[in-house]
Write a protein that binds this DNA or RNA. Structure first.
Length: 701
DNA sequence: GAGCACTGC
């Protein structure tokens, strides 16, 4: 600790912080910023008045491990003077003066205390990662220092040299540079882009293994498929090498869907005379640090999930990494001694093709939850379309969020938050699911809805990582798991949880049914948390059984489906007349299919339900709806009525935009007529047509 | 009849 670079800058840091409300600190890996900044400010009396220093982290494990370290260094009891708060776990006390917390937790805290008065200092650590939550916090901090200029200090730390942008955002606040403790990393470029980065990585890795001195090799790939292929090929090639001609080799895959017990294998160092090959996704970029790495092979690509606000669809694409990411990957070779990084692309591509920084998450996500959160804050002058973000999301994305929120009653037609919306914002869920819970409480089926919401919150971590042996046991193969009684995936998720509940949360039962134990426990935690929040909101008038003793009936499912229909009013689709394709209803109709993993059933004539709600649209080989629930026609009618009334000009706060901005979306009106403005003709006729189809179906049956 | 980068409240 004594030789951490940051400690030499203590005086300079204190002086700058004293004179400025906001300071940006640039510090590379190993500078000690995460553990030392809070201690420096603590030593200088920033916790004297009984207030606390908050340090945010983008990840839970970091909040826990860094705070433990700080408690140790200060020689205080963990959870007393120094503690942490992450979801489901609050290890702080009345005495806590340094508190590490995930940025999501700080956002929750600011809901009940918008001025965050308990904190004298707020340190946003790892801001360069630009997580959605960090970006919201950056915007909030900008507002907060205006309101609390005399008694709040904000420090923003970043590992990259792009502190100037953040500084400009905070009216040119000072930037301090703290050196890190990284060893130099020599960069080698390919002369051209390989036709196959898999083959190219293979060749490069074997070359290193044969020619270079000992030290582990970390290979960045895009996903599980590539990793498994490369691991297999590496094993073959290593075996074919002449025995004794080079070091022994251990080849390890590393990705998120690997069970934890296999993930931790990368933490045991290589035995003597042995080299490890770690083939990883970008989990090894920031989340997991592998010691012993001297060589990095960077394929230059990453898988990124992005949301398209004009279609409402998510896609997972392989895209080029940014220069920041390339540097981060290279840095992984220089943690223990000087290293080498082999980039499988030419130098000119690095300098001219790669984006300087990764597109921040806020520009790649659906913003319904974010907009609702901001609207629910009791801060003055929150105009969503003008909210001051470091990198603002597109107008399309914000308007998409407003429309969605309107359809589920979270905001009224003028864009003001409703009382339903305020309640929704209290729940740590996507808006559709929060809305479902509130509706379910009115229908007396809250218990079921809590389960469904919790299951969907964990959905991807329920089924274990796909591998050849478990492939057969997936959702669709004959198994003992229930099938949703034909109503779809939400009901199936409910039935699965209730079976587990009846086994008294038996771990073995999960294993027998091929469900991830960790995922199911997470569901139980989420469900409990949601229950407690609902109890607080509803002031005790809840209809909830904590264990599923009561026998399910179709009537229960009907109530739940009805609640889902209200909650997912913005995610509704109508089946085409003569086949099983669907058209989404709303302001951006899309032709979509039921995802093959769905358990939704056809009727005797082989037809799927006329109306369904879906959890999400994903565009893979084709556009699909994932996680569906059958709903009834007559529940859909009120949604048509709402769609007809929708007017984006009013929703976005009555600000009438110029003709240019509204072109092709809403017609332009003379300003004085805005309040009686009608949606455009195509919108109107589309809804009319849908209503006609609806009525003709209704009369038939 | 398809496929899952990584976080987080």
């Amino acid at each position: 600790m004594a030789n951490l670079p940051i400690l030499q800058f203590e005086e300079q840091i204190i002086e700058t912080v004293e004179q400025n409300p906001v300071v940006v600190i640039i510090g590379e890996t190993g500078s000690g910023k995460s553990t030392q900044l809070s201690q420096i400010l603590y030593r200088r009396g920033y916790t004297k008045s009984g207030r606390t220093i908050a340090v945010t982290q983008p990840r839970r494990v970091a909040a826990v491990s860094v705070s433990r370290r700080v408690a140790q260094e200060l020689g205080v009891r963990f959870g007393e003077e120094v503690g942490y708060a992450i979801r489901f776990e609050d290890r702080t006390s009345e005495k806590t003066c340094i508190k590490y917390l995930t940025d999501g937790v700080l956002l929750r805290e600011s809901l009940s205390n918008p001025e965050l008065n308990q904190y004298s200092v707020i340190i946003l650590d790892e801001a360069h990662e630009r997580s959605l939550n960090t970006d919201i916090l950056l915007g909030l901090m900008k507002q907060l220092i205006k309101m609390r200029s005399s008694n709040l200090k904000v420090l923003i730390t970043s590992a990259t040299l792009d502190g100037e942008k953040v500084s400009r955002f905070f009216s040119n606040c000072p930037i301090l540079n703290v050196p890190g403790k990284l060893f130099p990393v020599k960069i080698r470029y390919s002369s051209e882009r390989p036709t196959s980065y898999l083959e190219s990585s293979l060749k490069t890795a074997i070359d290193i293994h044969v020619r270079e001195p000992e030290g582990d090799i970390l290979i960045f790939m895009t996903g599980q498929d590539d990793i498994e292929k490369l691991v297999k090929k590496l094993e073959e090639r290593v075996q074919s090498l002449e025995e004794g001609s080079c070091l022994d080799a251990i080849i390890l895959p590393l990705h998120g869907s690997l069970p934890p017990e296999l993930q931790v294998r990368v933490f045991s160092p290589a035995p003597p005379n042995c080299r490890r090959f770690i083939v990883a996704t970008n989990i090894a970029e920031t989340s997991l640090t592998v010691d012993g790495v001297v060589y990095v092979i960077d394929c230059g690509y990453v898988k990124q999930r992005q949301y398209n606000p004009t279609t409402g669809m998510y896609s997972l694409d392989v895209v080029q990494i940014s220069r920041v990411q390339a540097d981060q990957r290279a840095g992984r070779a220089g943690r223990t001694r000087p290293g080498k990084c082999y980039r499988l692309y030419p130098s000119i591509a690095y300098h001219e093709d790669l984006l300087p920084a990764t597109i921040p998450e806020i520009q790649r996500s659906s913003l319904a939850g974010t907009v609702l959160y901001l609207k629910s804050l009791d801060l003055p002058d929150i105009d969503i379309l003008k909210f001051d973000f470091l990198d603002p999301p597109s107008t399309e994305s914000l308007e998409d969020a407003l429309k969605q929120l309107y359809l589920i009653d979270a905001i009224d037609e003028n864009g003001s938050i409703t009382s339903i919306g305020r309640t929704m914002a209290e729940l740590p869920l996507e808006p559709s699911l929060s809305r479902t819970l509130i509706e379910a409480n009115d229908y007396g089926c809250l218990s079921h809805a809590l389960t469904v919401a919790a299951m969907l919150s964990a959905e991807t971590s329920l089924l274990p990582g796909r591998s050849k042996s478990t492939d057969k046991k997936r959702k669709h193969e004959p198994s003992d798991l229930p099938d949703g009684s034909g109503w779809g995936d939400h009901i199936q998720l409910l039935q699965i949880y209730e079976l587990w509940d009846q086994t008294n949360y038996d771990v073995e039962w999960c294993k027998e049914n091929n469900l991830q134990v960790r995922g199911m426990k997470f569901v139980r935690d989420v469900r409990k948390q949601l229950y407690q929040i609902m109890q607080k909101i509803a002031k005790g008038s809840l209809d909830v059984q904590t264990n599923g003793r009561r026998k399910e009936s179709q009537e229960d499912y009907r109530h739940l489906r009805k609640a889902l229909c209200v909650g997912y009013a913005n995610q509704l689709a109508e089946r085409m007349m003569r086949h099983n394709g669907y058209r989404t209803l709303g302001f951006k109709p899309q032709l979509v299919q039921v995802h093959p993993s769905s358990v939704l059933k056809t009727d005797e004539e082989g037809m799927l339900p006329n109306y369904v709600v879906y959890h999400e649209l994903v565009s893979t080989s084709r556009p699909f709806m994932r996680n569906l629930c059958a709903v009834e026609m007559r529940w859909v009618m009120p949604i048509f009525t709402k769609l007809e009334k929708l007017n984006i000009n009013r929703l976005s706060g009555g600000t009438v935009r110029s003709e240019e901005q509204t072109k092709g979306e809403t017609p332009s009106f003379p300003e004085k007529d805005v309040s009686v403005a009608k949606p455009p003709d195509d919108h109107q006729s589309r809804i009319q047509a849908a209503r006609d189809r609806f009525l003709s179906r209704k009369s038939k049956g």
